[in-house]
Design a protein around this nucleic acid. Structure first.
Lengths: 341, 341
DNA sequence: TTGAAAGCGATACCAC
DNA sequence: GTGGTATCGCTTTCAA
């Protein structure tokens, strides 16, 4: 491997001088600088980030850990984070925890071991607490996005889940729906809880009864969603509409209903959060509380860098809630009848 | 930061012993091992990968650089790569070049600088040649996937673009289409060229005339696709079907046609490559030459690790072509009339 | 304007 | 079984 010493020897200067040329520090004669530059070119020199990081005690790298790299919401978050990191002079490292506590742990260990300057993370769930505490103990700045974790008080960027649920349920109620189910993700995840909370509040606000049998938790596995669909259809008072906890659940439910010959929105309306990048091509187009995914990433990186560079007050975590907007699609319609199919 | 010396002092042993405990090397008494382990726990020790990599001259990290992290095809590739890397004992670093030569260069510089053990890369285009040559000179093993680059003879995993085009065109011809356009990506990218090649071969095989005015190149920007749609509709002999170079182009064209009130497949059939993860939810479902995205990643990592570990013959690059399969959707139908709308 | 030496955190090699 | 020492590639500090 080519090192600064190779360059130094070839250019007949000291390693120190080479280092100065690379980093543009100190005073160097133009002649020497040119000579060194030329040798670096010739030898295809690429600085060793490890050696550099070791002495500088920083890497210039930020890490983004998301829970599902195949979810368009998170890839858009990644785009926002990447652009922001780049413009602030940092590189971005992407990781995928797959909603899995073990993978999350492995990734965090790797990240800490790599000594990145900061971490942007979507926690897999409440159990992420212990992993986040590891990060805290290690002293690496971090920001949570999309989800928060009880017991961890840190900078974070979240969406307005409660408000989103309210808007969606209000809209359904406005259409005349009176029996509305919730199929959400595991309550081990903060967004699922908040969306449930908004759901309950909105039901109350619209004078609709709450029925716990209409609240289902599903993982993102197809069989869960099939089961949820089945269960709702056979409920004694079957719902005419469903609030799906996120885009993936909405898709799964839609598929399940289609397979059972249930028309959406004819027989069942579906509303949800987040979109797919190409929302207008999915038929029906979901009525959605659209969150600013790109902003989640961009804002998160901004907070992270503020923290790294000490611009944030050290004691007060920055909490940032991004608003969503209701987009009406064709997955919703007036209920066919009151509570029965 | 906690180092092995801190551990050593606290546990009243030498740094060497701590290192041995960490790496499970050499003979150590169970008592000492336990003592050291306990101190590591207490102090939340996380090994410094930089220091480690510096002396070991390897990192255990593989890098995957794709051109569009928001394209479901590539996120599935990433999934395959991640799983394979994990099972082979490597970590995976994800990067996104955004189809941009400059970003690609920056990423490669960072990757080389990080001294990853190997690189899996989807080249942005033929101009990637110089960047790949940089990697060659640097001596880091790499494998290209999805696309190949003229002048670079290396391990690679590609799809059967020519065969895919043939199948798609044959299918259209079988439905009775006689005027079929091609809207492909830039010919600076190998897949676009191969798909064009397959298109021409298939036209000839089906005794259909070739008309160069029906061959358009588009970037993945919406305005390009709008322009392409416009141009095809106003052509003297307008096509009744289109082979879209990839999934993104197919989507863009579909949207453009819809906006113009053109029914797909009623007035225009569309076929393409790759899918969207949730293919069956997009209406119409595209008739597609589906490529095994997950395998692209998994196979690529396999080749890469074989190369790293010296299992591949050093002189002969491993070339691997993965087959695609034709999936009939609802984006295709019989032509309305012969060549005119 | 340039260079020598120390040290970042870890491991390999050689003693004991 | 365990410890000392040199070393990986680079930057910082201090001299010249």
């Amino acid at each position: 491997m080519v090192t600064i010493y190779d360059i130094a020897k070839q250019a007949d200067v000291s390693a120190m001088t080479v280092s100065r040329v690379i980093n543009n520090t100190g005073r160097i004669s133009e002649k020497t600088r040119e000579k060194v530059r030329k040798v670096m070119e010739e030898l295809n020199y690429v600085p060793n980030a490890m050696a550099r990081g070791l002495v500088l005690q920083k890497t210039g790298i930020l890490s983004l850990l998301v829970t599902d790299i195949t979810n368009p919401f998170y890839t858009t978050v990644a785009r926002g984070a990447e652009d922001a990191a780049r413009s602030l002079g940092f590189k971005l490292l992407l990781g995928n925890s797959d909603e899995d506590a073990n993978k999350e742990k492995e990734y965090i260990d790797m990240i800490l071991s790599t000594r990145v300057d900061g971490i942007l993370i979507t926690p897999a769930g409440d159990s992420s607490k212990e992993r986040l505490e590891t990060i805290v103990r290690h002293g690496t700045p971090f920001v949570t996005i999309d989800r928060d974790v009880p017991g961890i008080d840190c900078d974070n960027v979240v969406g307005d889940s409660i408000g989103g649920s309210r808007k969606l349920i209000d809209y359904l109620a406005g259409l005349g729906h009176r029996v509305i189910a919730l199929v959400g993700g595991s309550f081990d995840v903060s967004t699922a809880r908040y969306r449930y909370e908004g759901y309950r509040e909105a039901l109350a606000a619209n004078d609709l009864p709450y029925d716990e049998r209409l609240v289902l938790q599903a993982n993102y596995r197809m069989q869960d969603m099939e089961a949820a669909a089945e269960q709702l259809l056979s409920a004694s008072s079957a719902p005419t509409a469903i609030l799906a906890g996120n885009n993936m659940l909405a898709l799964g439910l839609l598929q399940s209903f289609r397979r059972r010959g249930i028309d959406v929105p004819g027989q069942m309306s579906i509303v949800t959060f987040d979109d797919f990048g190409h929302r207008d091509l999915i038929d029906p187009l979901f009525t959605t509380a659209v969150q600013p995914a790109y902003q989640f990433g961009a804002r998160g990186i901004q907070l992270l860098v503020d923290r790294i560079e000490g611009k944030s007050s050290s004691s007060t975590p920055q909490q940032c809630m991004l608003p969503n907007s209701l987009v009406i699609g064709s997955s919703t319609g007036v209920p066919r009848s009151n509570g029965t199919l």
